[in-house]
């Protein structure tokens, strides 16, 4: 009970943007360092493990493509959670989190699409096919861009927060569609092979670099996200200070 209330207090402490800034300043260097380290190990593993006997060297694209695709979905999930935070708990940082995550998510999605295309050209003979997995990821990309445009169009963050939260939650239907598209429809894109019932279908030789890269990407996401949230808070403070400056100007004249 007391532990629970402590957790709640810790959580609401975070609601204070100043506390968040202090925390961000403390953890960011560690996160960034860890990200660099993981990427160093991950990339080393990616380039030293053996190529696939069928795919050859192109299999290495997967070490970037798969984590980027995972992150594109995780980032949207984080945004959806933040949207819930905005609408249900009215957490003051939730809106900041959702807003900061959109460009990052768009970048990961773009990376996944590009690396997928690069892999698809030699393997499938075409840059792009309109199969369910690819199409739904492209739709996700468009949704990210749409949300960014919406955020940009409304200069008052308070008003934009609820509207975009509603849109984010509506858009969340796409995430299960992406996840299960390879099982529901018969697609060109191969089904999930790492996380599935009955154990992974991937050789440990490939699994090791993949997992390290996945963790590295996740750390990269958190590093970027915290930094972006910090910037967003700063941006809002600058805005309110400028408004303050405008109000006080010329008053003494």
């Amino acid at each position: 009970m007391s532990e629970n209330s402590l957790a709640i207090r810790k959580f609401s402490d975070l609601a204070n943007p100043t506390r968040f800034l202090a925390l961000a300043a403390r953890v960011l260097p560690w996160f960034a360092g860890l990200t660099v380290l993981l990427f160093a190990v991950g990339l080393y593993l990616s380039f030293t493990t053996e190529g696939d006997y069928q795919q050859g060297e192109t299999v290495r694209i997967m070490y970037v493509h798969v984590p980027a695709a995972w992150l594109s979905m995780m980032c949207y999930s984080v945004m959806a959670l933040s949207a819930l935070g905005t609408l249900v708990w009215r957490h003051p940082l939730a809106d900041v989190a959702a807003r900061a995550a959109a460009p990052i998510g768009a970048s990961f999605t773009f990376l996944a699409l590009v690396t997928g295309s690069l892999w698809g050209k030699p393997m499938w003979g075409t840059w792009w096919v309109w199969d369910a997995r690819l199409t739904s990821v492209f739709v996700l990309f468009l949704m990210y861009l749409g949300l960014m445009a919406l955020n940009r169009a409304m200069d008052e963050p308070g008003k934009a927060a609820k509207v975009s939260a509603v849109l984010i939650l509506v858009g969340f239907v796409n995430i299960p569609i992406i996840k299960f598209s390879v099982e529901w429809w018969n697609t060109l894109h191969q089904p999930a092979s790492v996380l599935r019932l009955g154990g992974s279908a991937i050789d440990p030789e490939f699994l090791r670099p993949l997992l390290v890269m996945a963790v590295a990407f996740t750390m990269l996401f958190f590093t970027l996200h915290i930094a972006a949230m910090r910037n967003e808070i700063w941006r809002r403070r600058v805005t309110s200070m400028r408004r303050q400056a405008a109000r006080s100007a010329g008053r003494e004249a």
């Binding site: 200069d155 400028r242 405008a246």
Partner: peptide, 21 residues
């Protein structure tokens, strides 16, 4: 017009009277 020093602000931030000036 008595509004020196705030010309770096977006015009929309100013009050109606300041905008007029």
């Amino acid at each position: 017009l008595g509004l020196g020093g705030i010309s770096h602000l977006p015009f929309g931030y100013l009050s109606a009277g300041q905008q007029r000036r």
